[in-house]
């Protein structure tokens, strides 16, 4: 059988450092203490939300670089993305940091797709240090995909809250004592006909389940092999559906299954189904998971970032919501 969409990294590139920045509301996150920088102002002192979005990304990149004692001119590639039209926040951040750049879009799954691309460039020996990651800014995303921020529409319990956060990783050739990228799986676009943009978890759950199963069968792995299998931003609703779908396929769903979106804000009912956004999975994967790996709590983890590939236009024209999930497997030896 041809292993479609499967990636194996013989040189096991490492995540040598991470940089995570977040907005003021994200202080409510259970993981807030782990973020490198939390701004006091939603606009990070900038004039517009979009500039704040770019600033968060810039700062995250600079933090990650400083942790590996580097400056932007030491980095070979910048592989980042966000959810805003034409990815201007990432483009503008790339302008400031000045690292050779490719913008990547996999919606909220960009956190993992960028890591995979960075690992590939490292694997073929073209990169000594690649910065990969994703970001989202609540106000900027909300106004593009939904309504003006101050509009008083009622959201259902299935709706998720786009986080204001940016998370990047510095991917380097294998370094002892750092989490290493062993393999990954590129997702297929899955669409089971969901149309409600206020229930993205339900739209993304089938994509997450599909990638999980393809990763396990393709790489010949079992749930038992992992210390944690974390999805990106399915939220409470989507996470339940994902566990049912995985269970239906014969996967034993245990407490190892976690979802960054569900856990991000804890049990706070104000955030309805939980967190979402490209920054959600990036921030949690690169703090909570990486920290626990470096502390030795986790030896092998599977991270599955999920993304809904819709636009406000496609939704208004009555299209269903196609979704994608990319998986990356990290080990600590």
């Amino acid at each position: 059988m041809v292993a479609r969409g499967l990636l194996t990294f013989k040189t096991t590139p490492s995540i040598a450092a991470t940089g995570v920045t977040a907005g003021p509301l994200e202080k409510k996150s259970l993981f807030a203490e782990k973020f490198d920088k939390v701004y006091e102002d939603e606009r990070c002192g900038m004039k517009t939300n979009e500039h704040a979005h770019a600033k968060m990304m810039e700062d995250a990149c600079m933090i990650a670089l400083s942790k590996v004692d580097s400056v932007p001119s030491d980095a070979d590639f910048l592989l980042i993305g966000d959810l805003i039209n034409q990815m201007t926040p990432s483009n503008f951040a790339a302008k400031t940091v000045g690292i050779p750049y490719i913008g990547l879009f996999s919606a909220c799954a960009t956190s993992v797709s960028s890591l995979l691309m960075a690992a590939l460039l490292t694997e073929i020996g073209m990169s000594k240090c690649a910065i990969a990651g994703a970001s989202s800014q609540h106000n900027a995303v909300e106004r593009q995909f939904r309504y003006p921020n101050e509009y008083g529409g009622q959201k259902p319990d299935t709706a998720q809250w786009t986080v204001t956060a940016a998370g990047v990783a510095a991917v380097t050739p294998h370094k002892k004592g750092f989490p290493s990228i062993e393999c990954g799986t590129i997702g297929c676009v899955i669409d089971l006909g969901m149309t409600d943009p206020l229930n993205m978890g339900a739209a993304m759950a089938p994509a997450a389940a599909d990638t999980l199963i393809r990763h396990l069968t393709g790489h010949n792995k079992d749930v038992k092999d992992y210390d944690v299998i974390m999805t990106g931003d399915l939220g409470k609703t989507g996470f339940e559906l994902y566990k049912i779908l995985a269970g239906n396929q014969g996967i034993v769903v245990t407490k190892k299954f976690r979802d960054a979106g569900e856990e991000f804000y804890g049990a706070d009912a104000a955030f309805l189904s939980g967190a979402s956004g490209a920054g959600c999975s990036a921030a949690i994967f690169l703090t909570e998971v990486i920290d626990k790996m470096r502390a030795g709590d986790y030896k092998r983890v599977l991270l599955i970032a999920t993304g809904a590939l819709l636009s406000p236009l496609s939704f208004q024209q009555g299209d269903t919501i196609p979704c994608i999930a990319h998986a990356i497997e990290l080990t600590m030896k």
């Binding site: 319990d157 299935t158 089971l192 969901m194 779908l245 239906n248």
Partner: peptide
Amino acid sequence: MDEKKYAKLEKDTSP
């Protein structure tokens, strides 16, 4: 899983 089955599952599971 086909779309109809999933729509039903989604309806049963979502709050």
